[in-house]
Design a protein around this nucleic acid. Structure first.
Length: 456
RNA sequence: CUCCCGUUCGUCUAGCCCGGCCUAGGACACCAGGUUUUCAUCCUGGCGACAGGGGUUCGAAUCCCCUACGGGAGGCCA
C-alpha cells in the first residue's frame, strides 16, 4: 500500500482563519492516523498580499496548535520547493504537457483549458451573455465523506491569466500530482470545483486522489460561513486571549467530527487514533464560542498545579504583577484557590489582582447592596476582633470563630461574608471566602478591614 | 438563473449505511434546587429536536419521491 500523503495548501493572508485551521487539523490528523506524511504548501501566487509577515502568522498559528508538518517551509522535503511562487518551472513543464495534447488555447491573452465534447452556444442567465458550453460527460467523484458525487463541467476555464500567472485550479492540481498527494481533504466550498480538478487530472493521465470534502464552519449568528471579519474567526485571537491551545484544537476537532461515543474532551493521541472519514459529518457546523469556553475551562481545571502556574504566571506578569517580589508559596496558594473556580485564563488577573495589591476600587453595586442590609459597620465591629486576635488564620479557625460570633449576635455566618469580601477585595464575588482570607493572612486582611471601616 | 452539498433539542452531535432495542441518548447554553442561602467551581433535576408532505412496510428519525429551507459553486480570487 502506498503511503498516505496529504497537504494543507493555505494562501497567506495575514490571518489564520479557524476554518483553515480545521482543514489543516483534519489533514494533520489523517496523516498521523495513517502514519502518512503531512505536507504544507504555500499558495502564494497572489503577490499583492503575500508578505513574510503573513506567512509567519500562518506558521505561528500552526505551531501554536501543534500542527507540525513533515514537508514544507523551514523543514524542506524532496518534493520542494513548497512555495508556489518558486514552482514556475514545474508549472511551465506541466503546461507544455497540456499544450502537446492540444488541450490549451489562447483567448483574450489568457490560456484556457479545453474540455472534450461537442460545443454549443447558450444564453446564460448568470453570466448575462451567450456563452459556449460543452456537452461533456459527467465527472464522478467518490468522495470519502459524501459518497458518490456527480457533476458536469461544461465550460472551458482559464488556467493561465493574461498576466502570465497560473490560476488556482491549475497549480493546485499540478502540485498535487507533482507532490504525490494521495488524499485531498478540504472544505466543501471546493466540492463544485472538483470537477474542474478531475478534468485536469485526467488530462495529465494522473491518478485522481481520494477527495474528502469536510463541512464548513458557519458564523455564530446570522447567515453564511464564517469569514475573517467575524468575531472569533481567527486562531491568533485565541492565543492572545490566553485560551489553551489543546482546548481550541480539541474543540475544532469536534466541529464536523466526533468519535460517536459521547466523548468530547480527549487527548490528541486519542483523537489521532480515532479520527477517520466515517466520523466526519456532512452538515455544516455553527461555531459556538460558549462551548469552546466550557471546554477550555475543563482543560484549565485538569491542569497540574505546576502547569497551571506556568500558564498563569506570565499572564499576571503582563498585567503588571511583580512576581519576583511575591513569596512563591503565597503565589502557589492563590493559584490553587483560583484554578478550581476560574473559567478562563483571560480573566485571571481580574479574578485575583487584589491578592497582590492593597488599593482597589469598590464595586458600586456591591456597595449599594451592603448598605441596604444590616449596618455594615455594625457587622464589621462584631467580626473585627476575630481578625485581630486569631493566631493561625486557618480556614477552620476563622470559621469556628466567626460561627461563634454569629451565634452570639443571632446571625448566620453568611451575614458577614459580603461586607468582608467587599472590604478585602472590592468585589462581590470571587473564590471561597474563608480560604481566601486564610491565604491573605492577617497582614492583608486586617488593614483592609480597618480602612474599609473608616471609609463607611 | 444553473449545478452541487446538506437538513435530529437554541448550539455541537449520537442514532441513519445494515428499518423494530428511540416513550430519540450525550454535551454546551438556559431554568430550578442542592453544596450549612459569599462565589465564575461542583452535584441533582428540568426545559428541549427527527423541516413539511406523500409513499414502501406489520413497523421509518432510519428506505424512496416531492416541496421547503440552509450552505456552496458557477471569476483572468483561493
Amino acid at each position: 500500500m502506498t503511503e498516505v500523503r496529504v497537504r494543507f495548501a493555505p494562501s497567506p493572508t495575514g490571518f489564520f482563519h479557524i476554518g483553515s485551521a480545521r482543514t489543516a487539523l483534519f489533514n494533520w490528523l489523517y496523516a498521523k492516523h495513517t502514519g502518512g506524511k503531512f505536507v504544507l504548501r504555500i499558495e502564494d501566487t497572489d503577490k499583492e498580499r503575500n508578505t513574510e509577515e503573513a506567512l509567519q502568522v500562518l506558521l505561528e498559528g500552526m505551531r501554536w496548535l501543534g500542527l507540525d508538518w513533515d514537508e514544507g517551509p523551514e523543514v524542506g522535503g524532496k518534493f520542494g520547493p513548497y512555495f508556489q511562487s518558486e514552482r514556475q518551472a514545474i508549472y511551465d513543464a506541466y503546461l507544455k504537457i497540456l499544450k502537446d495534447k492540444d488541450r490549451v488555447y489562447e483567448k483574450d491573452g489568457a490560456l484556457w483549458f479545453r474540455l472534450e465534447g461537442e460545443r454549443y452556444t447558450e444564453y446564460d442567465e448568470f453570466h448575462k451573455a451567450e456563452i459556449e458550453k460543452v456537452k461533456n460527460t459527467p465527472v464522478v467523484i467518490e468522495d470519502a465523506i459524501r459518497g458518490r458525487v456527480e457533476r458536469t463541467e461544461e465550460r472551458d476555464f482559464v488556467i493561465v491569466r493574461s498576466n502570465g500567472e497560473p490560476v488556482f485550479h491549475f497549480v493546485n492540481v499540478v502540485d498535487d500530482i507533482a507532490m504525490g498527494i494521495t488524499h485531498v481533504i478540504r472544505g466543501e466550498d471546493h466540492l463544485s470545483n472538483t470537477s474542474k480538478h478531475v478534468e485536469l487530472f485526467k488530462a495529465f493521465d494522473a491518478k485522481v486522489p481520494v477527495f474528502a470534502h469536510i463541512p464548513l464552519i458557519l458564523k455564530q449568528s446570522g447567515p453564511g460561513k464564517m469569514s475573517k471579519r467575524d468575531k472569533g474567526a481567527l486562531i491568533e485571537e485565541y492565543e492572545q486571549r490566553s485560551f489553551m491551545a489543546d482546548a481550541v484544537r480539541n474543540y475544532i476537532c469536534l466541529l464536523g467530527w466526533n468519535p460517536k461515543d459521547d466523548q468530547e474532551k480527549m487527548p490528541i493521541e486519542m483523537i489521532i487514533e480515532r479520527f477517520d472519514f466515517p466520523g466526519v459529518n456532512k452538515g455544516n457546523a455553527r461555531f459556538d464560542e460558549t462551548k469552546l469556553s466550557a471546554l477550555n475551562a475543563e482543560y484549565i481545571r485538569d491542569l497540574t498545579s505546576e502547569d497551571f502556574a506556568n500558564y498563569a504566571s506570565p499572564i499576571l506578569a503582563s498585567n503588571g504583577v511583580d512576581l519576583a517580589s511575591i513569596d512563591s508559596s503565597y503565589l502557589d496558594k492563590v493559584f490553587g484557590l483560583c484554578q478550581a473556580k476560574i473559567k478562563s485564563l483571560e480573566t485571571l488577573y481580574e479574578y485575583v489582582f487584589y491578592f497582590f495589591q492593597d488599593t482597589y476600587e469598590f464595586d458600586a453595586k456591591g456597595m449599594q447592596r451592603i448598605q441596604k442590609g444590616v449596618d455594615p459597620k455594625l457587622l464589621l465591629r462584631e467580626v473585627m476582633p476575630i481578625f485581630e486576635h486569631t493566631e493561625e488564620y486557618s480556614k477552620e479557625e476563622l470559621e469556628t470563630e466567626m460561627q461563634a460570633v454569629a451565634e452570639a449576635n443571632e446571625r448566620k455566618i453568611f451575614a458577614y461574608f459580603p461586607v468582608i469580601r467587599m472590604a478585602t477585595s472590592g468585589l462581590t464575588g470571587g473564590p471561597d471566602l474563608l480560604p481566601m482570607l486564610s491565604i491573605m493572612g492577617r497582614e492583608r486582611v486586617l488593614p483592609r478591614l480597618q480602612s474599609f471601616f473608616e471609609k463607611l
